[in-house]
């Protein structure tokens, strides 16, 4: 995806710049933007260092485990049909907690594991589409998979650390001003996602 997007952006920029007589500006943009990326990363080094450092304390002190235990009922509500003690629960929990805390790099591996676990769950349920012999081209996502993905996509992040860092790099007077509004907007999108998922799950298709 990014291969096309990135390539297209550059080609379009060069061609359009040549036509509008701004090719010198394009040249400068190449040099300036690359320098800017590095200085942005210097800011990010500090902010991410602090944030991930603090999160490491949360992990080793067992705080994340405590939070996960508190989240258990929520998982039960969102995925009532996943049997108690199934490994899918665990991965979903880790993924959601990591997303809330803004640990994207921890969220994705857990999310992929959760998907694999839900695939196994379908096999255990005897879903014909998921048997070894069935062709995977007709395989439909299970209700749990759809709900899990939609909730992931609805965004769960409590504190948008990256955005705060970018804002501070570009001279914001109050980089963290957006935290409150971002929490509300995230809440709105997640609530809409949960309601629509519950409605869709209630529909046909078992």
């Amino acid at each position: 995806m990014l291969n096309y997007l990135w390539g297209l952006m550059l080609l379009l920029g060069v061609i359009y710049g040549a036509f509008t007589g701004r090719i010198d500006a394009v040249t400068n943009a190449v040099l300036d933007s690359s320098k800017e990326a590095v200085s942005l990363c210097v800011t990010m080094l500090g902010v991410m260092g602090v944030w991930v450092g603090v999160m490491e304390i949360a992990k080793t002190s067992g705080l994340i485990k405590v939070l996960s235990r508190k989240m258990q009922p929520l998982i039960k509500f969102l995925f009532p049909k996943i049997p108690h003690g199934h490994e899918a629960n665990e991965f979903i929990l880790v993924n959601i907690i990591s997303n809330i805390l803004g640990l994207g790099w921890a969220a994705t591996p857990a999310g992929l594991k959760a998907m694999e676990a839900m695939e196994k769950l379908e096999k255990e349920r005897g879903n014909k589409e998921y048997l070894e012999t069935a062709s995977s081209s007709k395989r439909c996502a299970s209700n749990e998979m759809c709900t899990f993905l939609v909730i992931n996509i609805s965004s769960l992040q409590l504190i948008p650390v990256n955005m705060i860092a970018y804002r501070s790099q570009y001279g914001s007077i109050n980089p963290a001003l957006i935290v409150g509004p971002a929490i509300i907007a995230t809440f709105v999108s997640t609530i809409v996602a949960v309601i629509l998922c519950k409605v869709a799950e209630g529909g046909k298709h078992k």
């Binding site: 839900m118 695939e119 439909c140 998979m145 993905l149 996509i153 609805s154 996602a193």
Partner: peptide
């Protein structure tokens, strides 16, 4: 995510994800 579960038909995931976005 769907690649990890070898799923091709995503059913209502996309419309609802777009609605939530």
């Amino acid at each position: 995510y769907f690649m990890a579960a070898h799923v091709k038909k995503t059913r209502w995931t996309l419309p609802i994800a777009l609605a939530s976005t």
